[in-house]
Design a protein around this nucleic acid. Structure first.
Length: 641
RNA sequence: GCCCGCAUAGCUCAGGGGUAGAGCAACCGCCUUGUAAGCGGUAGGUCGUCAGUUCGAAUCCGACUGUGGGCACCA
């Protein structure tokens, strides 16, 4: 007798081993039909899985998150099935589930085209409609290798070869197509109803650039048609927030062939930049940093000492003069160490904090460039803290608190924090690493932050915290960072005198909150859909006359605003007020002043608000002084209007 | 760097082997206007660059540059 406990704690008993599907059927025909998979004692299995001992069982349907996962995974297999039907000599490799969809990598003699994509999707729908059973089969590893070699699937054979010898592997078959897979899968292809192939891409076999490039097909799959439509709509909306598009529309910056990966900042974009920079300058001043400025170009000998010449030469722009070689700095730390080294330092000076708005150039691979998010010339809010090992933790606590406060001021809510831990190749003792990693953890704990850890992803010289933010379509970009460095100060001869008159090497903390101004402003634009909070808006107020009778009054109002430090402009063009409103609304100006005879005679202003609760509506008429107070309080609070 | 796609007026885009088209913007007029596009007119392009095929190329082929989506990379 086998007892199966369902999620509602009810118990069903069976004389002999039963499949998940049979249990579902015993509950009712509705559940039987809806069952996609089962969860036996917390483990996801096929509906064909046989339960032979007492167990907890949940039937997974498309109402469960796991159900959607299973659907996506099975849709990836359906894709491979369809490709094999249409292109029998294509080879299959892997096809995992990813956020909101799946992909599958193929090897084929010619590139797939967008037309192929349409055909493949059609074939998928056809195969799904046939509602073919998806069958699981267990096979010894070696037999599976031979099987896939036999049918010409060399990639699959290679994958299985890396599974330890003696283990069994599971194969799934639907129609004539068999694939290696851990599973679970939907019981039959008819369960796959809502899917769409999205794009073609290249991808290296096993993620290694030395390997052959495969063809990757991305797709999405959902349980309900409406869900998919909503997702596609969301993607389309997100594309409208693309910083490249908005940067052009709002005349913030441009890029051109003559300077790939470098940005031409236009007046309005530069206002945003300056607001960010001036804000960050206060952050330096208020938190014990001294701002410095170092040369752009430094001698090859320095980069040889720091190790960059050996390891990162390909990414550096170099130049020469009178037979001396130089590199345009790819980072600011060596310069900061030279400033540190310019005087004799005592332990009493530590922690010593330098900050720079440091312009860096890195010769990034052309394929890595992306709008202003990944560029070749950029400016960092780069700071270095020279301290003792004992001071690492408190510096990290302070930094993390500061970074989160700064992100809050810019209106960011979702920040993913990660700690990159010791890599295989590293310097420094395990105890030192242990202390440094724990210092980072404790620092984040002290701020009540959540984080994930990336084992092996740290720099060779020390562990680091990374602060990631998402762009409009969900790609994650690293902005801030806090890195512990046990190596570079020693390499470049930094030292201080400790309390026993002994020369010691300081620890260096590399830290940035903004990361790169270019990337940060790109993310800012996308996150706010270019409706910048008042304190950052390039133009904060546009005053417009309704007819030319109020032109002088409008000029006076703008003069008053400018005198109060508000970024105000006038629009006295001979156009209808609705035309002007539309134009400046499209330009995302936070406040529009409508000045007609009414306002002119009463000596008031009528302000149309861009966003917030009263978006598109007017503030009550008020004097210019009151309006300025209103603006100033909003600017001080760094709120959106 | 690798795979695939794209490059036409200031912007957004249509067209497509017989030497270019729209809307918006610009410019000139008319209109004097109260909460998201008033009307009329004018001007504007070696169709990314370089080579090739062709009687003829913006169109087809190739290379290059830039760019988009991915992959790899991101010290």
């Amino acid at each position: 007798m086998i007892s199966i406990t369902l999620p509602d704690r009810s118990i069903r008993q069976f004389e002999q081993p039963v499949t998940v599907a049979e249990v579902a059927a015993s509950v009712g025909p509705g559940l039987s039909k809806a069952a996609l998979a089962g969860k036996v004692d917390g483990k996801l299995v096929d509906t064909s899985d046989v339960i032979s001992t007492d167990a907890d069982l949940a039937i997974i349907t498309d109402k469960d998150a796991e159900g959607l996962e299973v659907i996506r995974h099975s849709t990836a297999h359906l894709l491979a099935y369809a490709v094999k039907e249409l292109f029998p000599d294509a080879q299959v490799t892997i096809g995992p589930v990813i956020e909101s969809g799946f992909y599958y990598d193929f090897s084929y003699k010619r590139p797939f085209t967008p037309v192929d994509l349409v055909e493949i999707e059609k074939k998928m729908a056809e195969l799904a409609k046939k509602d073919e059973q998806v069958k699981r089969k267990i096979m010894p590893r070696d037999q599976a290798v031979a099987y896939f070699k036999g049918i010409g699937e060399t990639y699959k054979a290679e994958i299985i070869s890396s599974i330890p010898q003696g283990e069994d592997v599971s194969l799934y078959s639907e129609g004539a197509f068999t694939d290696l897979c851990r599973g679970p899968h939907v019981p039959s292809t008819g369960k796959l109803k809502v899917f769409k192939l999205l794009k073609l891409a290249g991808a290296y076999w096993r993620g290694d650039a030395r390997n052959e490039m495969l063809q990757r097909i991305y797709g999405t799959a959902w349980t309900k048609k409406e869900d998919q439509e909503q997702y596609l709509h969301m993607l389309a909306e997100a594309e409208k927030r693309d910083h490249r598009k908005l940067g052009k529309q709002l005349d913030l910056f441009h890029m051109q062939d003559e300077a790939p990966g470098m940005v031409f900042w236009h007046p309005k974009g530069w206002v945003i930049w300056q607001q960010v920079e001036q804000y960050m300058r206060r952050v330096y001043q208020d938190n014990g940093y001294q701002e410095i400025r170092c040369p752009q170009i430094l001698a090859r000998s320095l980069w040889e000492k720091s190790g960059h010449w050996e390891n990162y030469k390909d990414n550096m722009f170099t130049t020469e003069s009178e037979k001396h070689e130089y590199a345009i700095k790819p980072m600011n730390c060596p310069g900061h160490i030279l400033v540190f080294n310019s005087d004799l330092r005592s332990y009493r000076d530590l922690p010593l904090r330098y900050g720079e708005f440091g312009s860096c150039h890195r010769n990034e691979p052309s394929g890595a460039l992306h709008g202003i998010m990944r560029v070749r010339g950029f400016v960092q809010d780069d700071g270095h803290v020279f301290c003792t090992e004992d001071q690492i933790k408190s510096e990290c606590v302070d930094f993390n608190r500061l970074a989160l406060a700064v992100y809050g001021d810019f209106g960011f809510k979702e920040i993913a924090i990660k700690i990159a831990l010791r890599p295989e190749k590293r310097i420094g003792s395990n105890e030192t690493w242990e202390r440094a990693e724990n210092a980072l953890r404790e620092a984040l704990n002290a701020c009540g932050a959540n984080w994930s850890e990336l084992p092996g992803e740290g720099a060779f010289y020390g562990p680091k915290i990374e602060y990631h933010m998402k762009d409009s379509i969900g790609r994650s970009w690293q902005c801030g960072t806090m890195q512990v460095d046990f190596s570079t100060p020693g390499r470049l001869g930094a030292s201080y005198i400790d309390e026993h008159s002994v020369r010691q090497t300081p620890v260096m903390l590399h830290r940035a909150i903004i990361g790169s101004f270019e990337r940060f402003i790109g993310i800012l634009i996308e996150n706010h859909a270019a409706s910048m909070p008042l304190w950052l808006a390039p133009v904060q107020v546009v005053a417009m006359d309704i007819t030319e009778h109020q032109a002088d009054y409008a000029k006076d109002v703008v003069a008053g605003l400018k005198a109060a430090g508000i970024r105000a402009e006038s629009d006295l063009r001979n156009e209808k007020i609705s035309y002007k409103i539309r134009e400046h609304s499209v330009q995302k100006v936070p406040y529009l002043l409508l000045l007609g005879d009414k306002e002119m005679h009463a000596k008031t202003v009528t302000a149309r608000v861009r966003d917030g609760k009263g978006g598109g509506e007017n503030l009550p008429p008020m004097t210019l002084d009151d309006f300025i107070l209103h603006l100033k309080s909003e600017i001080a609070a760094k709120r959106a209007s």
